[in-house]
Design a protein around this nucleic acid. Structure first.
Lengths: 348, 348
DNA sequence: CCTGGCACTCACGCCCTTCGACTGCCAATA
DNA sequence: TATTGGCAGTCGAAGGGCGTGAGTGCCAGG
């Protein structure tokens, strides 16, 4: 593997053909097949030489001597990096996307749930979505609800997200004080960020009578907790069942890892985190490129969605490394665009 | 298959031995194995005769002539129905349960999420939980939040459940009217059920000025919607990844079906629905006993959990029909008991 | 630099055999 | 009548040998 950047244009064509053929059939690809399919005006022997060179360069492998070639992760990488930016959507897919966004939807979280389903139907893999992080939202409301032995603190973000925390009721706090606070607190934090609201609550606590102080401290604490950790960000998954189909192509351990990852939000976040800072519209992370420790043979295709110019969240798809990149990338791109329009419109 | 109720005690012993051995090894069980393991004072020839009879009765099958016997769903059914009610928990399991419930937890929904994880760790299958249905909760609060182009209606149930709906803002409704209503509505519905609150909102609408009427109608509509459909009940799933391990023992279609079912709440509900009306503490639904149309080779072990005497929700486990019933049933029973205590304590 | 040609490799499918884990049945037995 | 040892029979699994064919690598000639 040396100087992977400079490849003759024929090598490039062959590499592309191998990738596409392998993705289509799942079988190792031989030189003869390439001759038939890619129709460069050249014999199979030449292709063989080129393929040997491509193997030397680290783009192809050999399951065994007498078998065809299989693309490596590097091959997919290069393939994806040089994708023609043309149209890759089939008509029914285009219709599905249009249809989905034609419904009027007001709740961003519902929209994103639906989006994961849409993506999974489009690609037949699993769809992902990361909503805007709560800590960047502006608060519309903070509520305190008396639950008897406990107190619920409720925060409503400007995009319709509602987070709740149920905490022990501070002792020395009677229903009367709660009611007073319910009224005082209601609109107090409107238009502030979580961080600002937290600071404000702390300040208010200092200036309040003992009975209310404790509760305000609890509120501040809750707001702080909402800015960090799992409360703040989460990941929606849709269509994971599709991956069960794919399971046959994967090693046991991979399947296990994959489903585990899908269950643990923090893991999925690691996979999607870098996306929103990526300049390109759609990012593709192939196989071992993932910062995951154990074996991982999956690819994540992800794209940020924006409100106006701001990236506010991420959507994506997880599937096998041998996926139809043209179609999946086009699907994710198209959905991200429509979703961005919708998010902008919703004023997210 | 005739007269399945009357089996000689030796047949019963053999059946039990076959089930346990098959669950342990996953291999068809031969007559010789039974002689060694069950140690009835009898030769393998006798066992063979008995096994042939058990096959005749529909309790065992034969993958092929020269193989051992495999239990049918009927065998598991009988096995489960005659389980000794003794202790079936291993010490580490007991500790895990105690440990989990030793934490102070106030939010029932969080508790139930944790419970699904606990169950999946205990059994190595997937854990399920159905929270109390929202329509049976008493309301602590109904809020209206002005979101600009939309309006959010928020309902807080007595167990800390929060449901939201974002709806189009009725035209002719200015911010002023919303604010008025926010105040009026806040405590209006406290202590009522969803149905009562809905009726009340309708009545209020009739007696209100035009500007407020529309919004009250929207509120009524939202409350109605919360009583029905997916908003009302949902199912939590934990540890689905464990089932990926099991996948090897299952037919492709089964795995696919299973993961699909786990994704669709309504499906899981169908599987768990009958449980809470079942008088027994733990209910076991084996393979084809499920009312599902397609092939389904899984078993659901479920139990209601109670607050005081009232069943308020359900927990359970999904796994292969060949599961360690003693252990799984004991796990579900133990967790349901502890959960009932906790729910009672939380005043659910 | 390309090509046709050729020797070589090796998985796969096929057939055959052996092995052994079972069963089913029967005649002998308690 | 229930049980038993014994024995023949069945059939999958595992293994060996073989032919086939897809595919490679390499080379000598254009």
């Amino acid at each position: 593997m040396s100087d992977p950047l400079e490849l003759g244009s024929r090598k490039v064509a062959i590499l592309r053909a191998v990738v596409e053929e392998f993705v289509r059939t799942g079988e190792p690809v031989g030189s003869e097949t390439i001759v038939e399919r890619a129709g460069l005006g050249v014999s199979s022997a030449t292709i063989r030489n080129e393929m040997a060179a491509l193997e030397e360069l680290g783009y192809l492998t050999h399951p065994h001597t007498s078998a065809g070639r299989i693309p490596t992760d590097h091959a997919y990488r290069r393939y994806v990096d040089t994708l023609p930016s043309g149209r890759g959507l089939r008509d029914p897919q285009r219709r599905a996307i249009t249809g989905f966004f034609a419904e009027t939807m007001l709740d961003l979280e519902e929209v994103l749930k639906g989006t994961t389903q849409l993506l999974s139907r489009l690609t037949m893999y699993a769809g992902l979505a990361v909503p805007p992080s709560f800590s960047e939202e502006t608060l519309l409301r903070v509520e305190v609800v008396d639950m008897g032995p406990a107190v619920m603190v409720l925060a409503v973000g400007q995009h319709g997200r509602v987070e709740k925390a149920i905490v022990d009721r501070p002792k020395d706090l009677d229903g009367q004080a709660i009611e007073t606070l319910e009224r005082r607190v209601g609109d107090e934090f409107r238009g502030e960020s979580l961080a600002e609201a937290q600071a404000r609550a702390l300040k208010l606590a200092g200036a309040s009578p003992q009975a209310e102080r404790e509760l305000l401290l609890v509120i501040a604490d809750t707001l702080r907790e909402m800015q960090t950790g799992s409360r703040n960000v989460h990941v929606l998954v849709g269509g994971a069942a599709n991956l069960a189909d794919e399971a046959a192509h994967w090693r046991r351990a991979t399947v296990q890892r994959l489903f585990e990852a899908l269950e643990h939000e923090s893991e999925m976040l690691r996979l999607l985190r870098d996306v929103s800072v990526t300049p390109e519209e759609v990012s593709v992370t192939i196989g071992a490129e993932h910062p995951t420790t154990e074996e991982w043979e999956a690819t994540v295709v992800a794209a940020p969605f924006r409100s106006g110019e701001n990236p506010v969240g991420t959507i994506g798809v997880v599937g096998p490394t041998a996926m139809d990149y043209v179609n999946v990338v086009a699907s994710v791109r198209a959905v991200a665009r429509r979703l961005s329009e919708l998010a902008t419109e919703l004023g997210v």
